[in-house]
Simulated scan of single mutants.
Amino acid sequence: MLSRPVSREQWLHKGRVYATGWAFADTGEPLVRSIDNTAAAHNRRQALMRVGFWLT
Rank of each mutant, 00 (worst) to 15 (best):
S3M: 12
S3L: 15
R4F: 15
R4S: 14
P5K: 09
V6E: 10
S7N: 09
E9H: 14
E9D: 12
E9K: 11
Q10W: 08
W11K: 09
L12H: 10
L12S: 07
H13W: 06
K14V: 05
R16H: 13
V17W: 06
Y18H: 04
T20Y: 01
G21N: 08
G21K: 09
W22I: 08
A23E: 03
A23H: 06
F24A: 01
F24G: 00
G28W: 05
P30C: 04
P30S: 10
P30R: 05
P30Y: 03
L31P: 05
V32N: 08
R33N: 10
R33A: 07
S34V: 15
S34F: 12
I35C: 02
I35Y: 00
D36C: 10
T38G: 07
A39P: 00
N43R: 14
R45N: 02
Q46N: 11
Q46C: 07
Q46V: 13
A47P: 02
A47R: 12
L48C: 02
L48V: 03
R50Y: 05
R50W: 04
R50F: 09
V51C: 05
G52L: 03
G52S: 04
F53C: 03
F53N: 04
L55S: 11
L55E: 11
T56R: 13
T56Q: 13
T56K: 15
